[in-house]
Design a protein around this nucleic acid. Structure first.
Lengths: 117, 117
DNA sequence: CGTAGATACCTTGATAGTCAAGGTATCGTC
DNA sequence: GACGATACCTTGACTATCAAGGTATCTACG
């Protein structure tokens, strides 16, 4: 529904890292999982997904390995590196702080704000 | 703290609209207010602020008028139009939905999710 | 047999928004 | 008279997203 998801800017990488925290996955599966998990609240475009995966691999946050998908097709599986794990922690904190700040402005009525420790 | 705020992408306009909901303000004052209100959790760069104001004026979401600031300096005051108000409502909903989806993935532990009516 | 749809990958070009870094001008203060 | 705060504005580079294309394999259906 949201015309174009520029809101995703900078968040997609964190979402991918988080997805991989649950175990190794291939790209297509990462997208499906995120969409399923949010009941299509998030829509992951392949034109954003794959470039994001390459960026993160280049930076050493994730590692790739060719394998076979659940359905027996060839698929490239990604897994978190140690560097990726610490990035995930860092970026999750950043997002929580950002979301809290924006929520404080935009949604002052709802009591949904996350607090920093 | 957050290195570069690409998270702001698409959110800045909504934040500005929301700021103007509290009454007419000039650009510089909008930035100060947002930073104060979030205890510098948000940092508004002028290179993002002014272009955003022009975009929104061009689209008819806000209207500008020259006046004098609290300190007697010349300043351009912006106010919400009817179109801007409905945009604010629409974009606030979009953000709430997006933030809820991302929070569900990234912060499953905290019970901070907003629900749609 | 062939064709359609789902799976799974990848690339290109356009677009748009942010940022860093510059700049102007006024006012008050030390 | 120099500095810092107020208040505006612009430029160029960057970066991530998206739309829209493409390849290949497998299954299912008629």
């Amino acid at each position: 529904m949201a015309s174009s998801n520029e809101l995703l800017h900078g968040t997609l990488e964190t979402l991918i890292l988080k997805t991989l925290q649950g175990g190794s996955r291939h790209g297509y599966s990462i997208a499906r999982w995120l969409e399923d998990e949010t009941s299509d609240g998030l829509q992951i475009e392949e034109g954003s997904l794959y470039p994001a995966l390459y960026r993160m691999e280049r930076r050493g946050w994730i590692e790739a390995e060719w394998g076979k998908s659940e359905l027996g097709r060839k698929a490239k599986f990604y897994r978190l590196t140690a560097e990726g794990k610490s990035q995930l922690a860092r970026q999750t904190n950043e997002w929580a702080a950002f979301a809290a700040a924006v929520s404080k402005i935009l949604l002052p009525s709802t009591g949904l704000i996350a607090e920093k420790a």
